[in-house]
Amino acid sequence: MATLQLDENLIIRMASNDGAAFRELYQQTSGVVYGFAMSILRNKHDAEDVMHDAFIKIYTSAVTYKPSGNPMAWILTIVRNLCLNKIRAGKVCEELAEYDDLAGALNDSNAVLDRMVLETAMNVLDAEERQIVVLHAMTGFRHREIAEILDIPTGTVLSKYNRALKKMRNEMEAKGVER
């Protein structure tokens, strides 16, 4: 799986109010930012709130960014902290199966299967499993990198990743999905 490579200079340029840099960063990362927030919060509206706040924070914190060679990890840590703050503050909505609605927007033939995979991930995985699978799927990060972002041992990431995908395969198989 290709790793999402983000040019660190985009963040450095944003610190000088470079609108083009912000646009480019948004275009490259909006899917991951949203997907990661969804994997934690499991709710469309909350994920959208966090996505909005995350991009504002990424922009306003760009001046404090210290080049580390992994700007995606910096961005995902911002997203995770915002999600956790929302949960701690009790500001999250009840977990609603709004992913049905969201995936419903996809109406081509491939979209049916995409939607089923998304539903399965949201329904059968626990929160940590969802985060691990989404990060792996959307960033191509190694398990070690995911472990650092989620602040859990690499071994836990590895075992949860394997267990999560097995659960998803079993569920899809039970639904009669074959490729």
């Binding site: 799986m1 275009q27 909006s30 997907g35 969804m38 996809l106 799927a137 959307m138 998803m168």
Partner: peptide, 26 residues
């Protein structure tokens, strides 16, 4: 039988498609 790569590809595709476009507002 759907494999791991296929699952991840479709999951990423669904979430990318579902992400709202808020660039102009931001």
């Amino acid at each position: 039988m759907i494999d791991n790569n296929e699952i991840e590809k479709r999951l990423a595709s669904a979430l990318n498609a579902a992400a709202p476009d808020m660039l102009d507002d931001l």
